[in-house]
């Protein structure tokens, strides 16, 4: 309990962050190594179980190789990766981001705890990544760096129950979107019943004074609006524009306005 108290109050956070950084540096290569081992082993067992039928199909498959080679570039995985990178490039062309330093990073792990929506990326302090930096992915904002280690960093996704982001939409309207811990949607907080908002509307980071993110980054699309008669606030939900699962590549925005 003492450890939790010291960490949560920030009195020993330097110590715990240092220990976490060392642990991350030790475990990252081990994790990659084990993951590299698992795939071939899985393929080996799959091959061993189906050896007889594999031999029969071998000749048949050889004849198909030439035809497959021509369509190889159009496989679903390649197309998905291409589309992901294309969307990421589109985000880079946004005026609000084009002037910022960007650190491209690969996602090495996702949701390492059942109680937090996070990703781990392969870039850390040595690449200039700092706590508070905004992270964008294909489609829009993904989250924020919450832990920056030597060669890796942890990013809290928008959908995490602790995430909040100030957004603007429509005719200079502003709101705060918060993550919903057990889902892939976001919830607008304190949105007055008189605010004009409609389903399908796009929301962007507001970038107001003290904001955690640069302005103008696409965040989410409104999926539902409910007004209750007599209630002071509207109930609005939105879906993040960036896919929160299956992320491969992201970009960290080095932004002087971040909380670091």
């Amino acid at each position: 309990m003492s450890i939790i108290t010291l960490d949560e109050t920030g009195k020993a956070s330097v110590l715990t962050t240092g220990a976490k950084s060392v642990a991350s540096d030790i475990y990252s290569p081990l994790r990659s190594g084990v993951n590299g081992l698992i795939d071939p082993i899985g393929r080996f067992f799959a091959g061993a179980v189906n050896y007889g039928s594999l031999q029969r199909e071998n000749e048949k498959l050889r004849s198909q190789i030439d035809a497959l080679e021509t369509t190889h570039a159009q496989t679903a995985a390649a197309k998905r990766q291409y589309s992901e990178l294309e969307k990421l490039l589109a985000i880079n062309r946004l005026p609000s981001i084009s002037g910022l330093d960007v650190v491209p990073a690969q996602v090495t792990a996702q949701d390492i705890s059942d109680f937090a929506s996070t990703i781990t990326i392969d870039k850390g302090r040595t690449s200039g990544v700092a706590i508070g930096d905004a992270v964008v992915g294909p489609g829009g904002l993904v989250g924020q760096v919450t832990e920056a280690f030597h060669g890796a960093a942890q990013v809290r996704l928008l959908t995490d129950g602790k995430s909040t982001v100030g957004v603007s939409f429509g005719n200079h309207e502003v709101a705060t979107l918060a993550g919903v811990q057990s889902g892939s949607t976001l919830r607008a907080e304190d949105l007055s019943s008189t605010t004009a908002v409609s389903v399908g509307e796009l929301m962007y980071t507001s970038g107001l004074a003290g904001a955690q993110f640069p302005p103008g980054i696409p965040v989410a699309r409104v999926t539902s609006v409910h007004s209750v008669v007599g209630a002071a606030n509207k109930q609005v939900t939105a879906k993040p524009l960036a896919a929160m699962s299956g992320l491969s590549y992201v970009e960290v925005l080095i932004w002087s306005g971040s909380s670091s």
Partner: peptide
């Protein structure tokens, strides 16, 4: 040891 790699409060899993 688990807390070293988790994004949740340090020491909670240990407790």
């Amino acid at each position: 040891a688990a807390d070293l790699l988790l994004p949740t409060p340090f020491g909670l899993t240990a407790l």
